[in-house]
Amino acid sequence: MLHIIYMEMNKSTILLGHGSGGKLSHELIASVFLKHFNNEPLMRSTDSALLHIDCNDIVFTTDGYVVDPVFFPGGNIGKLAVCGTVNDIAVTGAQPLYLSASFIIEEGFAFDRLEEIVVSMAAEAKKAGVLIVTGDTKVVNKGKCDKIFITTSGVGVLDKKFKHIAGAGECRPGDKIIVNGSLGNHGMAVMSSREQLHYHTPVESDCGSLYSLIRAVTEEVPVSFMRDATRGGLATVLVELCGMTKLGISLDEEHIPIDDSVRGICEVFGFDPLYVANEGKVVMVVPAAYSTKAVQIMQSMAEGKDAAVIGEITGTEKPRVILNTVVGGKRIMDMLAGEQLPRIC
């Protein structure tokens, strides 16, 4: 009887022992990670995953995820950790293949919540066609981390014809700038959830894998540049692009898709949605002749249904981002200095 109670307690929350490397660790790995991530390189349980890749050009990336709250409308930290790394690979033009996942868990974290996170990671990995082939688990004392932190690294293979995309070297004046949908949803969903703000129209995070959408476009359109607009939002990506190409950008505010719910929250708190984080948005630069096609392809897919051309690359005279505002004014768009803070009145 005592033994059963002990097992039940073990099941309800994560204990320091789950990260000790002993029996509890093995039990956790088998009952949660191996069960859901289930793939051949992982199941071999070798110290390093043994992989075979037939390719000369490999992309490799890593990212840490510390989102608060861990669960938010439209996703959770696990979904984010898979999508974020898959997207970082996909926007270089590469095909994501393998991920690692490293967990730092605060003791006392609910076991079923961990499993929920792992299940959504497995689902997202499946959707993006990647395998989570290696991982690590550490459990730290209460208060030493905020519930759970996840780090994912990823490897992808890059076709020669896409090697120019990440560096933006083939962007030319006249190229069109496209975004695959409404901006600012992730940032506002997380903030609203963290601050427990309730609205009539709840905002959901756009957290999702972009690989299918990107592949569909790159199969038919010669893309000059891509980057996912995560922290710092659309504005930051475009300012970075100006810096890389030394070319100017002209952006039309009236064509930038922003959901009414996000616009509303941003108006109330004094945030600029162009600087708010996204987790499922890609900014793409394509030659003008292909812009309609690229938008059509995106719009035929759920993650690109609100895709739009939002601006174009201009000349070399003034390498900066000029926003044509909704009322017809013009202003320079720069990077944000710090984080956006809600205003007083």
């Binding site: 013009k330 202003r331 320079i332 944000l336 200095a337 803070l341 205003r343 007083i344």
Partner: peptide, 24 residues
Amino acid sequence: VSPIGACMVSGEGACAAYYLYGNE
């Protein structure tokens, strides 16, 4: 990031507005 004067400290200050939204 490191404001010295009053008008740069808040997003609504004249210097911060000029800095962020420099007009064409």
